[in-house]
Design a protein around this nucleic acid. Sequence first.
RNA 1: GUGGGGGUAGCUCAGUUGGCAGAGCACAGGGUUGUGGCCCCUGUGGUCGCGGGUUCGAGUCCCGUCCCUCACCCCA
Length: 415
Amino acid sequence: MVRYRAPRGMEDILPPRSKTMRRLEEIARELLALYGYDEIILPVMEQAELYLRSIGEETDIVQKEMFILEDRAGRKLALRPEATAGVARAFVEHGMDRGGLPVKLFYVGPMFRHERPQAGRYRQFHQLGVELIGPASPEADAETILLALHILKRADIPVELRLNTVGDASCRPSYLRELLGFLRKRGEQLCGECQRRIERNPLRVLDCKEPRCREILKEAPLIHDSLCAECRAHWEELLDVLRQQGVEPLIDPLLVRGLDYYTRTVFELVSPNLGAQNAVAAGGRYDYLIEEMGGKRTPAVGFSLGMERALLLMGDRDDIREGVYVVAQSETARRQALNLAMELRKRGLRAEVDVMRRSLKAQMREADRRNFQYAVILGEEELAGGYLTLKDMAEGVQRTTSWDGLLSGNFEAME
RNA sequence: GUGGGGGUAGCUCAGUUGGCAGAGCACAGGGUUGUGGCCCCUGUGGUCGCGGGUUCGAGUCCCGUCCCUCACCCCA
């Protein structure tokens, strides 16, 4: 009987999954270096108000999904539901613009949302995210999208790019008025949830999945018809740059993201193999967030990638045969086996010895099961004769060798 | 928060009309005194999610509860 369980929605990531997760992270880190991003390591908690201000008070994340706790002084802290707000806060707090723009940052780590767990959705999950702070250009949007695509491609995860624009402060308000007018007129026919959303967050009505809502929304005014000249130009240039890079986005005029801070570009990288939670990575532009955090008006764009979701689409790689398992037959041999293993390790080789005090046969089995390339046998005969037996575990052949020969890396001359 | 499907060995799952709790895999030991994989034998391992009820008897029927899972909502 199990006495304790991991908290609901919080998963233990065991080997070999943990290895695969590390592999994904390494792939990303490698590319991030090539694109010129440096890591920022943030606290996993922030003052709760930070999220109200940045993500939006009416969003579900803030309304019902935050883990909130009080410190001893009575300050309300929230476990971070996402990291962009924290990056923006740190950027402002440390005056990071003083070293010149752009500032290119990435982060990796756990996020927390108190939701009902589901496939690809956890209460603690890991995101790897990128923030490109400073540029207002569509090329910047394109670069972050291309980077996200690049990472996923390297990880062998096929995705589709869904793209939209949500306008900015100069065109969104008038569009919202227009949309609101439409929704109020047709509100009766919408689902109950949408009727509530009309007043609280009308944009969200757009991506309702109810068939009858979708039907009505076909006639809804689209932001694309209301974009200001700047937003339109930005949008078209972005499409242009992406296409030039061989990326054909799926333009989804109804794509709206759940965070209030987005302006202009929003995107999702979705996989058809994920079930309902199909976004592996998502992001967008947030030109006012830094200012909202008390900094100078600084445009920025970024995305975050759900590691668990990516992991769902990655297989665990088979371990390749590697290293030396030192098999010892007698008690005295065990001491020497440990010595040999230590010497091999000092030379940078994977080397292990039996610590379960098991039989030679069991040690051989272990060497095989743990995918060692070689077993070195230190038995009675070897001790007496002052030599070692080296066995190639894949080929099944063995020969004698000397301690020195082994340490000098002389594995190759096997028959 | 709402709905569907599930909780039996470490894992994947059988378990007939209520009648002694099983298989495969994994793990451990062995198969003529040192040698892994294939094969064979043996073994370890279950308060059948938890609590109550019905019954001579409950994994099985009833009630409650917790958890997992999928979907809605929302999102990475």
